[in-house]
Simulated scan of single mutants.
Amino acid sequence: MTAPGVPAGVLTAASQQGVWAWVAVRLAPAAALDDHRGYADVPEEQRRTQAVGQELAWLEALLALGPGFRFELRLRNDPSARLLHGALLGQARGADQDSAVRAALALRDRLTAGPRHVRADPVFDTDEVRDWLVPFTPHPEGLAELRKPLAHAPCTRRDTGRTTSFAVSPLRWSAHSWEPFWAELGRLPYPAVAGICLEPYTVTEDVRLAFRMLADEYARLTAPGQVRPTWNVAEAPDMFASQALPLLQDAVRRYAGPACRSRISLACAEALPPGLAEQFGATAGGAVVCRPPAQERAAAWANTAGLNRNTLPMTYAQGAPAHVLNPVERLLTDLLDASEAAAAFRLPYEVPGHHPLFASPGRVPRPRTAPGPVRGRQPVPPGGDPGAPRFDC
């Protein structure tokens, strides 16, 4: 059902902070990789590299638009056909319904104009948009969040107020195939979704200065510190800071252009099978698997159901004392540049001669969500974003 005055294919929800709007674009491997044999005159690894080059240029253009919207690549399995369905989901926000809808439609146009190796068809059925957002009710043990690796260690220096040192590693793109993970996801006998959500983020001069100051702090920790009067010897360098410093210096260089905040999620209607989340993380640039504790599962699913990015403090801390992460370090844990985003945001492709993994027009119809409680109001994270969706329309 479409809300009055809202175009078909746009789902809206109002909050005290404005109106939110969601849209969807179906994805499938385009004929350019199969019937037209695009990239077919080069080896498979080079074919993937060329396809990723197009995706990177497309992502850079989207991220350069700046903040104000979110978009997610979502893959959904069809247990009966053993094939995957893909979509790009978009979320925009406005002060009122008209501005939110206009922003969402403009975003849908942008998402439809993707690289030539994917077929993108805008969704004009509001119920289908809702189905993509909330396809099932997840199992309590069926949720996983994938994050940039976060290492930590007690700070050994007494001449600083820092108690814990942190090192955040970037995601790394490689030319390996996504087909093994896609095949495992498609073979699951119960519903599952994998999503990579990106929110364009402007790295201001103030933010860059904060990164440089953090790097300077760690550089100081790698050198001998103040002299201890009792023994007349200097504080020894912090060995963990020596490991973290190159990563911070890389961040200073890396986050100078288009960037985004990120959320990578995996959800299943049954408990996650062993190894699937880890395979997803390894394929997505070396992300690590974080299982939400019981008190954060509702918030984790609300993020997926509404294309939100509300923080899950315990989940995201990766075993570190979350309360000692300063705001700059928290930002680094989910900030991606375009190359990192391309490592995880891999659009569907199909290699000639390989077994099909994705549903495409004429191959299999899209699955519909069975009626049930998932079509009702969705939970709002306690203390979270009051604009989280309730899908009243």
Score class of each variant (00 low, 15 high):
residue 120 A to P: 11
residue 132 W to C: 00
residue 108 R to Y: 04
residue 98 D to E: 15
residue 95 A to R: 13
residue 100 A to Y: 04
residue 106 A to L: 03
residue 102 R to C: 13
residue 97 Q to N: 11
residue 115 P to R: 05
residue 99 S to L: 07
residue 108 R to V: 03
residue 132 W to K: 02
residue 123 V to S: 01
residue 103 A to V: 09
residue 119 R to E: 13
residue 118 V to C: 02
residue 119 R to F: 09
residue 131 D to R: 07
residue 115 P to Q: 12
residue 115 P to V: 05
residue 110 R to K: 03
residue 122 P to Y: 04
residue 120 A to C: 10
residue 106 A to E: 13
residue 110 R to D: 13
residue 104 A to K: 05
residue 109 D to G: 14
residue 135 P to L: 01
residue 124 F to A: 11
residue 123 V to W: 01
residue 124 F to L: 15
residue 120 A to L: 03
residue 122 P to G: 07
residue 108 R to T: 08
residue 101 V to C: 00
residue 99 S to C: 02
residue 133 L to E: 04
residue 126 T to I: 03
residue 130 R to H: 15
residue 113 A to R: 09
residue 126 T to Y: 04
residue 122 P to I: 04
residue 106 A to P: 05
residue 94 G to T: 02
residue 119 R to A: 12
residue 107 L to W: 05
residue 133 L to Q: 00
residue 108 R to I: 00
residue 100 A to T: 05
residue 115 P to C: 03
residue 129 V to M: 09
residue 107 L to H: 05
residue 120 A to W: 06
residue 123 V to H: 00
residue 117 H to I: 06
residue 98 D to Y: 09
residue 114 G to M: 03
residue 105 L to W: 09
residue 113 A to M: 11
residue 108 R to F: 05
residue 117 H to L: 04
residue 109 D to E: 14
residue 112 T to E: 14
residue 109 D to P: 10
residue 108 R to D: 11
residue 130 R to D: 12
residue 131 D to N: 13
residue 124 F to E: 15
residue 122 P to F: 05
residue 112 T to C: 14
residue 125 D to E: 15
residue 132 W to H: 08
residue 105 L to C: 12
residue 105 L to R: 14
residue 96 D to K: 04
residue 115 P to Y: 01
residue 130 R to Q: 13
residue 101 V to R: 00
residue 124 F to T: 15
residue 116 R to A: 15
residue 106 A to Y: 05
residue 130 R to G: 08
residue 124 F to S: 15
residue 123 V to Q: 05
residue 124 F to K: 13
residue 108 R to G: 04
residue 125 D to A: 14
residue 117 H to K: 09
residue 110 R to E: 11
residue 135 P to C: 01
residue 132 W to L: 02
residue 118 V to G: 02
residue 105 L to F: 06
residue 127 D to V: 12
residue 96 D to C: 00
residue 97 Q to W: 04
residue 96 D to I: 02
residue 125 D to W: 15
residue 124 F to R: 11
residue 112 T to A: 12
residue 121 D to P: 04
residue 125 D to H: 14
residue 94 G to Y: 11
residue 104 A to R: 09
residue 100 A to L: 02
residue 113 A to N: 15
residue 122 P to H: 05
residue 98 D to F: 14
residue 116 R to V: 05
residue 120 A to V: 01
residue 125 D to T: 13
residue 134 V to F: 00
residue 121 D to W: 03
residue 112 T to P: 14
residue 113 A to Q: 15
residue 110 R to S: 13
residue 98 D to Q: 11
residue 123 V to E: 00
residue 116 R to Y: 12
residue 120 A to G: 06
residue 97 Q to D: 08
residue 127 D to R: 08
residue 97 Q to R: 13
residue 112 T to V: 07
residue 122 P to W: 06
residue 130 R to I: 03
residue 107 L to S: 07
residue 113 A to L: 12
residue 127 D to P: 08
residue 130 R to V: 03
residue 94 G to Q: 10
residue 129 V to T: 06
residue 118 V to Y: 06
residue 129 V to N: 02
residue 103 A to I: 12
residue 129 V to F: 00
residue 102 R to E: 14
residue 128 E to C: 07
residue 97 Q to T: 15
residue 107 L to V: 11
residue 107 L to T: 08
residue 132 W to I: 00
residue 95 A to K: 11
